[in-house]
Design a protein around this nucleic acid. Structure first.
Lengths: 215, 215
DNA sequence: GTGGCGATGTGTACGTTGTCAACATTACCC
DNA sequence: GGGTAATGTTGACAACGTACACATCGCCAC
């Protein structure tokens, strides 16, 4: 039946394998991304994957990279929803808000992909993506905040880790931790509060300059 | 050689298995906690574990619980180091600081245990621990802050998730993420900044009441 | 054209893992 | 002291990642 079904050479096997990996991890998280399950899904023998990926880990890393792209897309969509026709300073803060809320929304909507995205260290030898990843989007928004005077430069160093850590930790609670299976609305509101707290914590006193002195 | 080495009945197998699990996960994280490796380490056949644990997962959960106890101990030690002979209000904040810094210190010192501690959902059917766990310590410190007027009651709901998420996320970056293998001193300082930012974010304006009006 | 060669996919096999069923050994209680 | 339940062992199975030898195809040189 092999000969009747498909030509001997698949043609697009690497893409097909990654697509299968995305389907499986979407439903079952990183643990579902089994080499054999992926090849089975693609209608190909288990060892065929070794022609295009050195390892099981290699396939996982490449698939994880794709989920990180999906995360970045969710961030960009969230930023767009929040609106960008504002004064530059407000827009910068809004971008940080979009980054954080998009991150949490992604963890809520796609817990399987979120699990995979960060269960796997990005290998440094791979060619960097052309489009900005989640981390780049965060850095951009923080830099914009400094440039527009919302964030004082002496609070900039390390701010990316404070922001990422805070939001990532909450997203992790939602996707894999004690807040999983919690009601969506509640978690959403909690997520908003976390993002606000993060921004307040990072910006600290200098946000007052933007908002005006308000208790 | 089985008869010569040890008596047929081990006597303390459950404890021995968990101890072996702690040793293995300490060095290799959650992935190293293999049922066969654990039984091998305890000098016992693979299926012997099934007399005391229903599952591989059961053994993992029980071992993970122990690592969470170790985390709580680190938190308590850190709180003690920060000093407790202070006005009640300051002590409450100090306790929150100790909770956060202890969490991060634990992730730095025992990344393997930290990985295990939260790679596994706590099963709700188990009998609750007598000693307070990490989460209880966090709740206590936040409640104390409300009681002593450092934290306004309307900021209390959900604050535990904001705090936990923030600190957990940063600790995750340190133990398994891009900040792994970073220089200890740098990360430690970053961790301190994160904890301060978290406290500032959660407490927000009401902290001024404690510290006095200072820019 | 046609031969051959490199790229791609297959089949088989090995070691490891979690788990089950049947069996062996021991502690303990009437 | 003998029976019974608790505890540990052996052997087996399926699924996993992976190595090796082999099969099949696209494509370029002649």
């Amino acid at each position: 039946m092999t000969t009747a079904d498909r030509p001997y050479h698949h043609g697009e096997l690497p893409e097909a394998l990654i697509d299968a990996g995305l389907r499986l991890s979407r439903a079952g998280g990183a643990a579902a991304l089994t080499l054999r399950a992926v090849t089975r899904e693609a209608g190909v023998s288990a060892t065929a994957a070794y022609r295009h990926f050195t390892d099981h880990d290699h396939l996982r890393r490449d698939t994880a990279r794709r989920t990180r792209r999906a995360l970045a897309d969710t961030m960009l969509a969230t930023i767009a929803e929040l609106g960008t026709d504002l004064p530059a300073a407000e827009t910068a803060v809004q971008r940080l808000r979009g980054v954080g809320l998009g991150y949490i929304r992604f963890a809520l909507d796609e817990p399987g992909w979120f699990d995979l995205a960060f269960s796997m260290p990005d290998d440094p030898t791979a060619t960097p993506d052309d489009a900005p990843g989640p981390f780049e989007l965060l850095m951009e928004s923080l830099d914009a905040m400094v440039a527009t005077g919302v964030l004082s430069p002496d609070r900039r160093p390390g701010a990316e880790w404070a922001c990422w850590g805070s939001v990532h930790g909450f997203a992790d609670l939602v996707a894999r931790g004690p807040l999983r299976d919690q009601e969506r609305v509640v978690v959403d509101q909690l997520g908003r509060n976390v993002v606000e707290a993060v921004i307040a914590g990072v910006v600290a006193g200098s946000l007052d300059a933007l908002r005006g002195p308000q208790a």
